[in-house]
């Protein structure tokens, strides 16, 4: 193959790679809707809740990662209990909740809870 054609193929491959790299884990199905609703409810009056989503892309995951800004004076174990309750109210019972400090590298887990 001539060099110029190789370059064309290379350009297409690089951009295809970038295209694939911007995929999202899943379309927003029922689980995604419930997760989003849990986030919205959990965030009410709790400005320190940054975001919430499934900790892994694996389908059927029962993990919820809740990212929070590290506000001192908050009992994160109690907050994890609240997250369990809110998740359950939104149709996500028996989740594994991870409360994680936003922006920390490596991630700093503030609390873990296996919801009943």
């Amino acid at each position: 193959m001539k060099t110029k054609h190789f370059l064309l193929v290379l350009i297409l491959f690089v951009y295809a790679g970038l295209y694939i790299a911007t995929s999202t884990p899943d379309k927003c199905d029922n689980d995604c809707e419930r997760t989003n609703q849990t986030f919205m409810n959990l965030r009410l009056n709790r400005p320190y809740v940054s975001t919430l989503y499934r900790c892994t892309n694996r389908q059927g995951s029962d993990t919820l990662c809740v990212f929070v800004s590290d506000t001192t004076g908050i009992d994160w174990n109690l907050f994890a209990d609240t997250a369990c309750m809110v998740a359950s109210q939104n149709g996500l019972p028996r989740q594994k909740i991870f409360i994680i400090k936003s922006g920390a590298t490596p991630p700093d887990t503030l609390a873990k809870k296996v919801c009943p």
Binding site: L18, I20, A21, T22, S23, T24, P25, F39, R43, S50, T51, Y53, C65, F67, I100, S102, G103, T105, P106, P107
Partner: peptide, 17 residues
């Protein structure tokens, strides 16, 4: 930050949800 390329960087928090 939910897209794959950003998740790989370990960044998780949007400036505005």
């Amino acid at each position: 930050p939910e897209v794959a390329v950003i998740r790989w960087t370990g960044h998780h928090t949007p400036l505005i949800p």
